[in-house]
């Protein structure tokens, strides 16, 4: 009986497992294998030659290859951290605003917030590159009205990455607001009523009911926000080309430059493996942190 059950479960799982194996696991394993090879992306896999850890020594070495990779890794980490730091609190604030039943126009606000997520990145990039324009950009004109001089935004290595982060936050916050609202709907109203009877004010209700019960939603949002941020590519490719002075050169853009433009497939794969490992470490750390909080 158990054997028959196992066989039928195996048959039913086979299509999905095969698809995942072919389209997800196989490319990942192939990337890991290529990271130990000297290989040009323009040649067949059979031309790859094993070079051990040389690609990894190179990308962490002192040459321009190593410097550019470490710079791109740092830029990606900063971009990801800033995106999550801005997006999560804003999504909760907007979620609370929209979810309040006594606020008029909540549905309209929800639609407007989510609309930014639906705008194609090419349109966002075009508009924001003009908004940030140092000479004719509306942002600088508005700053000028309140007596602040023109800001370089994308033209300075100090502000270019943060300018791209703001663009990302503007586009993504609506999606995460919808997730926050979904989390808020799961909190029973009776808890707030009981808290009110006990004399809890709004701030206390937020701190002791809303925030703890939103933890699972926020964990999910954080994981998705991190994965989205790590994969940033379009705004860099469309607006800054990784500059100035490599200040917006993020890993996906850099891997494309190395692996495709320069056809250095082995080096590009080693960089992709490091990106994958970094992502796994961060996500595992996040889950471990969340589990520890749950245990407390």
């Amino acid at each position: 009986m158990i054997n028959r059950y196992r066989a039928s479960a195996g048959i039913m799982l086979a299509p999905a497992v095969t698809l995942i194996g072919v389209f997800v696991l196989l490319p990942m394993l192939l990337t890991v294998w290529l990271s130990f090879q000297d290989w040009s992306t323009q040649t067949p896999f059979s031309n790859a030659s094993f070079i051990g850890l040389d690609n990894f020594y190179e990308i962490f070495g002192p040459t321009s290859v190593g410097r550019d990779f470490k710079g791109a890794l740092a830029n990606t980490a900063i971009y990801t951290a800033l995106s999550v730091i801005f997006i999560l609190p804003l999504s909760v604030v907007f979620g609370l605003m929209v979810y309040q039943r006594d606020v008029a126009g909540g549905t309209a606000l929800r639609t407007v917030l989510f609309a930014t997520y639906m705008v194609p990145m090419i349109a966002v990039a075009l508009v924001w590159s003009k908004l940030y324009s140092p000479s004719e950009g509306p942002l600088n004109q508005m700053l000028g009205l309140v007596g602040i001089g023109p800001q370089p935004f994308l033209s300075s290595p100090r502000s270019a990455l943060i300018s791209i982060v703001f663009l990302n936050v503007w586009q993504q916050v609506g999606y995460f607001t919808v997730l926050a609202i979904a989390g808020l709907t799961q909190i029973p109203g009776s808890l707030y009523e009981a808290a009110k009877l006990d004399g809890a004010n709004r701030r206390e209700q937020f701190r002791f009911i809303t925030l703890p019960l939103l933890r699972r939603t926020l964990l999910f949002s954080a994981v998705i926000a991190i994965i989205n941020a790590v994969q940033v590519f379009e705004p860099v490719a469309l607006i800054t080309q990784g500059g100035p002075v490599g200040s917006t050169n993020v890993l996906t853009y850099h891997i494309r430059r190395v692996g495709i433009e320069r056809a250095q497939g082995g080096l590009g794969s080693a960089m992709a493996v490091m990106l994958m490992l970094s992502l796994i470490v961060v996500i595992c750390a996040l889950f471990a942190f969340a589990n520890r909080k749950n245990d407390e």
Binding site: S133, P134, S135, L154, S155, I239, T240, Q241
Partner: peptide
């Protein structure tokens, strides 16, 4: 001024804008 020197993917951008506008 390096902040006036940026180019975009189409090889246009502020460096061109600043020259054509007499800056």
């Amino acid at each position: 001024v390096p902040a006036m020197a940026t180019a975009d993917a189409n090889t246009t951008g502020p460096f061109l804008d600043n020259f054509v506008s007499g800056k």
